[in-house]
Design a protein around this nucleic acid. Sequence first.
DNA 1: CTTTACAAACCGCCCGGTCGGTTTTATAAA
DNA 2: TTTATAAAACCGACCGGGCGGTTTGTAAAG
Lengths: 207, 207
Amino acid sequence: MDNATRSERSRNAALDAAIAIVARDGPGRLTLDAIARESGLSKGGVMHQFRTKEAVLKALLERQMLHFEQFSTPYRAKARAESENPELATEIATVREAANTPNSAALALLAAMVENPDLMALPRASDEKTIAAIRAEATDPDLAMLRWAAARGLLLGELFGMSPLPKVERERLFARLLDDSQWRALEKPAKRRAAAASKSTTARKRA
Amino acid sequence: MDNATRSERSRNAALDAAIAIVARDGPGRLTLDAIARESGLSKGGVMHQFRTKEAVLKALLERQMLHFEQFSTPYRAKARAESENPELATEIATVREAANTPNSAALALLAAMVENPDLMALPRASDEKTIAAIRAEATDPDLAMLRWAAARGLLLGELFGMSPLPKVERERLFARLLDDSQWRALEKPAKRRAAAASKSTTARKRA
DNA sequence: CTTTACAAACCGCCCGGTCGGTTTTATAAA
DNA sequence: TTTATAAAACCGACCGGGCGGTTTGTAAAG
């Protein structure tokens, strides 16, 4: 077998093993020895592909981010033609996809955070862009943020094993989040002062 | 000093230390030795109060749940008189409180999950009740769930260090979530079958 | 004097990481 | 095509340190 493919196979085997371990035993049980055992590789083999445990987590994170990017990119292309909020729609749909892909995604996040909170910088940076894009395209940016936050809430509840929502119900809620027509009724164009405390912030845009 | 109070002091010192460690160094660094060091107690002292590490996590979880119960109970009493969705309002307000209490709350959750995912059974059980109560009182249960999910999304984003939202903005979003009048426009009374694929769902109510 | 709260030394295990050696692939001169 | 050599992939024994937990001892409370 080709050298490059041999490496690739081993690396993927290790990362798959890592996800399986986190999903089955929790992030606290993710050790290099466990990865070696689960993947069939020797510990030396694992250490050859990843010089350190942190490198494993980083690779895991990057692979998952790439995976969801590959889901979201074609979706966004389609959404741009069909939806008035393509960025928001894409993000919600991607989050839904993550929620329906049990052994994956943010399990990597969890593992990374346990070992080294700094690793969260990668996904955070990607998030900031997403948020900015969502706000930029929205008639009512705050409402868009709330729809986005709701999607995240559904996802994280699922991942933490904290949500007793059956799948069919979760799907129904995601569908409603995605349906623009359901939310138009309470869109408040750009900035509307909410009476109460008269805080004069920005609020120009669109006069 | 009284024996009972002596124990109580030590227990609280240990739990405070545990929270501080998780907040500062991440859940992966939470060890019995670290708790002893941080709290000023000896390791033997810690082990006298908690026979095992899991007992520490469990106590931590229970203390935090109690703390937020003590916040939510009076709030609920007031909300019952003022709001049409007192359970939902209480839950959102409590979550907001948690989001504004940085070194606390769900940090305990995180630590527990890392060590032993089964410990999540406690907060999950409490959650199920909350959800049931919210649905029961709601005109549009799904919409109520979405508002609840959005609150969770905001909180978890904060805890995970994944949300670049400045506090003032987060507060604004929470306020909007809490304001019933903003959501009435798209309430769909109780159950409506969503007829297969055809999206006849749009906002009725209010014709 | 018994019991409880705490201290400190200690134990065995498993962790992340290293290292010397073996097998497989890549390169290229004969 | 063969053969000599190197580089890369892989193995598994090993190491120091830190882990959760135990034991032994002491001082305070009851």
